[in-house]
Structure formats: C-alpha cells, structure tokens
Design a protein around this nucleic acid. Structure first.
Ligand code: SF4
Ligand code: SF4
Lengths: 145, 145
DNA sequence: CAAAAATAAGACTAAATTTTCTTATTTGCA
DNA sequence: TGCAAATAAGAAAATTTAGTCTTATTTTTG
C-alpha cells in the first residue's frame, strides 16, 4: 500500500531523483533506470512518457536513445513531479472524504489536517532535486545488492 | 481519489463520528447511517462489521437492531479507527516507495516527511471523537440538503 | 407462532489501478 | 541500405479496491 502518492508517482519521483544525480541531459535507457529502482521497465517507460509531455524530462528515440532530465535539478521541485502525475487534488480534497470543504462547514479535522496539509505542500514545494542529490545517490546505491 | 485513507476508512471514520454525536449505545440502522453520510448502505454495513469485530462499535441484530458506539467517545481516538480499517502501514512505509528505511539509508525526504508523518500520527492519536462532536454535527447536518 | 426488519457473512460484480505485451516508429551504425 | 536498439503508443491482462447481491440468522412485535 502506498502512503500518499500512487505507485506511478512514487516511481516517477524515484526515476527523476535518479536522473538528477547525473549531469543534465545525460541519457539513460528505460531499462537502466528500471533496474536501478527495481521496477518494471515498461512501467517506468510509461511514467517517463508522462513526465516527458509535461516537460520535466526529455526523451530521445532510436538506438542509444533514452530519457534525460530536461530541466536543471535546481529548478525541479518535488511538487512539480507530483503535480504532473497524480495532480494536486490531494491538497484540495478532505482527508475524511467529506464533500464541500468551507470555513462555515469544515470537517472535524479541518484545523489540524489543514495545517499538516499545508506543511506537506510547502515541503514538496521547497525541496528541489538538486538539494536531495547526495542522499538520493546513497539511497539508490544501497538498493541493488 | 482519496487523500491518505482508503474509501472504507474514510467512511468508517465518518460513520463513527456520526455515532459519537449521540449518547453512547444509541442504535442506528445501517440504512440511517448510510443516508446521513451519503454512502451505499451495504458498504457502510460491511465497514461497521469490521469495526464491530475490533470492538469500537457494537451491533444488534433483528428488528429495531442496528449499530452503536460501544466505547465512550472520549476514549476512541481517530487512530483507533484508522488502525482497525487501513492498518498502520501508512506510518511505516516510505512516502517515496523506497524499501528499507533506515538511519543509514534514508530516502531523500526522510527528514522532512518523517516529521510530518509523526505529526499526523500524533494528531490522529490525540483527537478523540468526543472533542470533535460539535463540528461533526455541524458538518453532517450540512450534507443532506 | 408468524411476519417483518435488521445485521452477519460471504459470494459476486464492477471499477480503478497497476503491470505486461505488442506493434509502430525512430535513430545510429556497420 | 538494412539491422539493431530504443522510445511511443496503446491494447490487454492482472491485481486491488470498491461496491452489490444473496442467503442465513436474529429479534421484535402483532
Ligand atoms: S481542510 Fe479539513 S474540512 Fe477542509 S477538506 Fe481538508 S480535511 Fe476536510
Ligand atoms: S521516513 Fe523517510 S526514508 Fe523513512 S520510509 Fe519514510 S519517507 Fe522513506
């Protein structure tokens, strides 16, 4: 079970974090990336297609083609990836599933969850790929035994 | 799309919050509850069965039977309901989906997310149904036009 | 005692998500 | 030019989650 993001989004974040550990425009095939993050190649490829159409990564067809980070790692925020894959409904919907959030009719946890929700959003908006580079490298290297 | 909890869990929380607005042991049929929270009757019934077996609500069969809150609203925490339905993996798994969280190999957002995760857990552990009574009543009354 | 109304239980169906497969197209290189 | 390797695109399969239906059992009430 995922925590907040869909599987697609989790893997999208992982893939993009991986790409950001290398100089911009460095090509990696979907296969290479999928091996690094232990995910099905075709699934990774499909997710990166989504990120390609939203402009975060670029792709190159043909022999020796692959995917690459199109934007400078210092300019890509985690929220940009989340937004491209899962969208931002997460930050609009009620955590209890009640419809119609408003100041007059808030849900029972409006106050406490609203605060946490904003902090989560802020966290994802402040963190760029560049800032996470070292820790990402460490984590990904530990994965493949 | 749900925010964090499954649909079952959202509706379970809604149902229990609704029950907590009335004196303990007040019976409501699955139909009544489902109408209040605008959810399929059979689905609500099934969710309440789960909560019955975990002891939070009680059920009474037969004519004029129904479900009722078995524990004092002041003693039921939101986390108890979440735990009974979705479990607590949410608070154990990595938000980025990386396996093997540890201090040596944390995921890139370990520090910031770990903090938010703990705050979320604390929030759900501190809030009891009783404390949310007034705001719950207001919210639920606003639902059915 | 019989009928009605309710939950319990579990099989079943439907929908959404995740994963795989297949085909087409592009590109580099011998 | 023709083959190999790669993405693109989308169909199809598998899995998970959500929701429905059916049957059995319980309980109240006339
Ligand atoms: S902020 Fe609170 S009331 Fe508003 S939708 Fe979120 S959880 Fe519900
Ligand atoms: S605390 Fe951080 S590293 Fe650990 S599992 Fe959660 S998100 Fe991943």
């Amino acid at each position: 079970m995922t925590v907040i993001f869909s599987k697609k989004c989790e893997l999208g974040l992982q893939a993009v974090l991986y790409l950001s550990a290398f100089p911009k425009n460095t090509l990696f095939s979907a296969l290479e990336i999928s091996e690094k993050i232990n995910a099905p190649k075709e699934f990774v490829s499909k997710i990166l297609q989504t990120l390609t159409s939203s402009g975060i990564v670029g792709s190159k067809k043909g022999n020796s083609g692959g995917f690459y980070l199109k934007i400078d790692p210092g300019s890509v925020r985690l929220i940009d990836v989340v937004s491209a894959i899962d969208g931002l409904d997460l930050f609009r919907n009620c955590v209890l599933g009640f419809p119609g959030c408003s100041v007059d009719e808030p849900c029972p946890v409006h106050e406490s969850w609203g605060k946490l929700r904003n902090e989560t959003y802020t966290m994802l908006s402040n963190q760029t790929l560049a800032e996470l580079r070292d820790i990402t490298v460490n984590k990904i290297n530990s994965l493949k035994k």
